[in-house]
Design a protein around this nucleic acid. Sequence first.
RNA 1: GCGGGGAUGCCCGAGCUAGGUCAAAGGGGGCGGACUGAGGCUCCGCUGGUGUAGACCUGCGUGGGUUCAAGUCCCACUCCCCGCACCA
Length: 940
Amino acid sequence: MSIGEKWQKKWKESKIFEANVDSREKFYTTVAFPYPNSPFHLGHGRTYVTADIYARYMRMKGYNVLFPMGFHYTGTPIITMADDVAKGEKEVIDIFKNIYEIPDQVIPKLSDPLFMANYFKDDIKKAMDEMGLSIDWRREFTTIDPEFSSFIVWQFNTLQKRGFVVKDTHPVGWCPVHHLPVGMHDTKGDMEPDIGEYTLIFFESKSGYLPAATLRPETIFGVVAIWVNPKEKYVIAEVKGRKVILSERSAFKLTFQIDNIKVLEKISGSELTKITAINPVTGDTIPILGADFVDVNTATGIVMSVPAHAPFDYFYLKKVSSSIRPIAVVQVDGYNEFPAVELVEKSNPKNDTDLKKLTEQLYRIEYNKGRMRKDAIERSKEEFRSELGSVIGISVPEARKSITDFLISHGLGDKIYEIMNKPVYCRCGNEVVVKILKDQWFLDYGNPEWKALVRKLVSKMRLVPDEVRKDFEYSIEWLQKRACARTRGLGTPLPWDKKWIIESLSDSTIYMAYYTIAHKIKAYKLRASQMTFDFWDYVLLGKGDINDISKLTGISIDVLQQLRSEFMYWYPLDMRHSGSDLIPNHLSFFIFNHAAIFPEDLWPRGIAVNGLVLYEGKKMSKSLRNIIPLRKTIRIYGPDVIRITLSSLSDMGSEANFTDAAAKSVMDSLKRFYEIASSISSFNGNELGFAEKWLMSRLNSSIKQSISLMDNMRFRDANNLILFGLLSDVNEYMEMVKAEGRDPNGSILRDFVIAWTRLLAPFAPHIAEEVWNALGNSGFVSVSRWPNYDESNIDLKLELEHEYHKEIIDDIRSILNVYKGNPKIATIYVANTSEHTLLMDALKTTAGGGTLKTFMSSHRPKNKEEAKELQDIFEYATEMSDSKKKLLLLGVDEEVLLKEGLPLIKYKTGLDIEVQKYSDEIMRKYKKESFPLRPSIVLS
RNA sequence: GCGGGGAUGCCCGAGCUAGGUCAAAGGGGGCGGACUGAGGCUCCGCUGGUGUAGACCUGCGUGGGUUCAAGUCCCACUCCCCGCACCA
């Protein structure tokens, strides 16, 4: 059995992570629960480990820590994926089989969604245990447990009562064949259908209205023709009581958006080109022209031609007719009155791809810099002129909005939805269309009262790292109505309209409250039917009369009280951990729903967000086939290595790059820690010299620093300090002792290792327990206290002195570097008191904002040499490091200091060292100056 | 387009919210050495260029600017990554 398994088992047996209400201060933390549609990969581990490190740290700080876990079954991906398995979809099966190494006999069973969810839940749970997460598993649940459903029903009833649920229509991507909404998971190539709006403008003709579809309705004044595709089929249909002409395909697609479309007759595109149309805004009569580039599958298949501002239009119009003149609508600085003409003539596009690029370019320029021309607006019909006058001179985006409103309000236009990134195909092979869902239920995140509460909540919240605050503020302002129910998937039916299932991002917003009593619900075997609206109102909001509720539900008063006090002990949630990708949705919804349901004193206090995980510098993806199962890496490296590599090698807010090299180096460091810990009994020294004092100082100052780093979740810095930093300190200590030719001090090292083990425990709990136990400590390091530091052991001066010694060594080495020959002795000339006085004076001058001039004038050099010396010392003073200044201010006898470091300097340089006082003679002989803490060194 | 975040030495990556201690932390890789039966363990040294003395030169996306002094501040530009809704 590995060290990992050994301690995981012991933790479980001793129940140390099962948190119960007691008199201690509590700390309640959660992580977004997993969605079990596949096993965990490396990327999943990061958030959980990060939360666990903090949970373990807080536990060691003496808090009563609750870290529960549940599983999210709600939604469609599990169903879709099970379907894929059932259909024998190659890619999915290949991933399960070859990446996650799921046994052959299991794979067919995964075609049952519930089997899949349970199977992966178990696998994920194992992964969590194998990572050493300090979870209280008694509170585990899934979101389709009837007990949990009763909680969600209560949540939605409450939201409904408070007026935060509204009914509205909503466009979705839709498969016209199996009549279901399609999201990213349901499309070929996982394409998210991007739904956009086209404006329709009704041009009159003798055969009916031509609804030209455009993204730029403001260019209506510059329309010189209508394009249709002469090779395609069109129909005349009755739409909203109006006779319109549109492509056959369009008529079909629009049935999903508009009721009662009646196709009256068919007409070919070429036939259409024989008639003319009338611009409803200007009254101009314009030709209908044929063009192959018109795609009848996009919008209505009727396109208006604006050659002044659309490169396509100008390019093709030029080919068909030379008599039509462009009409300018938008003025842009740096272009002539017909920007599209100018662009096409200048860059001479060869094909549609070139034209597309020009279109995008012009579109952007006009959108950002364009202004509406007066002459264009004045082309409108007399009756509209005064109303449209307001758009003269305004920007394109503004004009677009008001002209669209104008068109619709005058019955001259309409809006339709279209898939903008078309074609998008459903997995069944049919092209996705836009469907308007009627009677859809929404959570009204746009509600101003609600938003105001949320703003308040966020402003009081602790966010780690704080940079994500902007993201939250942005996303909260941006959120509007959000559909909260779906037609299919696992989950809880909407209580007042049971054909809808509450969708997954809506039933996962306040479930942290459920954990606080989940174990009691199980222990008392409460049934969902007992957990009524009144029950939840009492337990979570303290509403209602406990006697009545007890009678109504058949739950004893004692149990009800217990549940209420459990909840009130743990709530509010202190910290929520999640990936940064969930900021605009889940985490924001979490905030919104808490604000809506709970009183202010129960609002969550903090969110910690981490970036994603890369593997060897690349994003993990199916297509790259570089998905690394988490459990596999734990088998290879052990849990402690994985924990540190995922969570503590990069800053929390930035992405973490998992590389095998990094994991290996963490593994080596942990091994080294273990070796040192196991060998301390063999060290027999007992001297308490400079080296020991230095080591103790390093330890104590590291402990001191660790506290603020851990408090702020700066795990990268903390780990650098604790794992890598203390390791190199021990090495340094060993060298120092070796230089003095003596044995390391065993008892000092023992104290050091004991503290070190505690510091390491949140990061590498398994190896920490092992060492803790081997050193003869009772109990678990996991529930021991974070080490205290003794301020009196922190000797800044001593540490600075050691720095000084190392600098002397570096200096000698850099001279050796360029020295030709074999020197035996380094003579170090230490500055004398007069230089010391001068330097102090120079420092005083610079500190007071004085310059070289001030300094000179107060010293009045007698000759050139003296002036040079003064100047040098002043320059030295200005560029002196802070640590040297400190050392100088602490007051040192440099000669004594040097002698203290002699063994180390000799050992490291391999030279004999002589220390002498500096004199002018040295200056004459070697042309070298000595400054305090910067002695001159002469090799010979 | 909107919003957020980046661009640092062979590679990865700190530092840039308080400008000087920055040729620039820490890794990795490479080179050399110690230990060893051996080492893929560990430890030590070197790893921009030049240099017979701890120095100098070049340098932190590009171009300007502020300053005695800029990787760090200001302006402009180029490029890259992430999110943008009913999907967990």
